[in-house]
């Protein structure tokens, strides 16, 4: 049934900045502001109306939220002051946490697993490892292929001392505290996301 508000209300409450979705007046500025706009299945404005319309599957299974480059164009132009970038990030996260997002969606996989895993494993980004993980995510063969495609660039980076030849970096000194902090934050976050 359309416009069943239970999904919308859950999003308003439990998705980051989700309550702002109520405020959209469907002007379309966000869609026109987005650098990857044409690649979105639903523009932010449409996503918001779909949320309000109770179209849970359409929203959460859409790849749209994963097209955000975090350029913040929409946020500064929205006439209603919706923090659209954050709302879209929140919806992406929501879709991921609730298990709707396609785990093989490239950005989902990169953002939720590879990047986050990379930073929490040591406390800082290990660029080389990050890149390798990204290339080899689909297995060795395609990883080598991707790596080869970018080999000139990588070589350039290495030669200009902008890529670490040793991919594994050390942990930060306070890593134990850092990890405990993250764990606590994740625990609180999980509670919040569950609507507790």
């Amino acid at each position: 049934m359309a416009y069943d508000l239970s999904f919308a209300q859950d999003v308003y409450k439990n998705s980051e900045m989700g309550h702002w979705i109520k405020m959209c007046k469907q002007c379309g500025v966000c869609a026109g502001s987005c650098p990857l706009g044409p690649h979105w299945e639903y523009s932010p404005r449409q996503l918001f109306q779909l949320v309000r319309g109770g179209k849970k599957e359409e929203v959460l299974k859409s790849s749209s939220m994963w097209m955000c480059t975090s350029c913040y164009n929409c946020i500064v132009r929205c006439p209603r002051g919706l923090p659209i970038t954050h709302i879209v990030h929140g919806l992406a996260r929501y879709a991921s946490v609730k298990g709707y997002a396609d785990p093989d969606q490239v950005t989902n996989r990169f953002a939720t697993k590879i990047f986050w895993g990379n930073i929490v494993s040591t406390g800082r980004v290990g660029e080389a490892l990050l890149t390798m993980r990204l290339y080899f995510v689909d297995g060795l063969a395609s990883g080598i292929k991707r790596g080869l495609e970018m080999k000139d660039s990588a070589l350039g980076m290495l030669m200009t001392k902008r890529l670490n030849p040793i991919p594994i970096r050390g942990k930060i000194k306070g890593y134990a505290g850092f990890t405990a902090m993250i764990a606590k934050a994740q625990e609180l976050e999980a509670k919040r996301e569950a609507g507790a």
């Binding site: 975090s70 954050h86 929140g90 992406a92 996260r93 990047f115 986050w116 930073i119 902090m181 976050e189």
Partner: peptide
């Protein structure tokens, strides 16, 4: 001993609080 800021792409893995933390 600073740590990564989590960057904007950190939203998906980190959500709100871990990212801000």
């Amino acid at each position: 001993d600073w740590n990564c800021c989590s960057a904007s792409i950190g939203y998906a893995g980190g959500g709100q609080l871990p990212r801000l933390a």
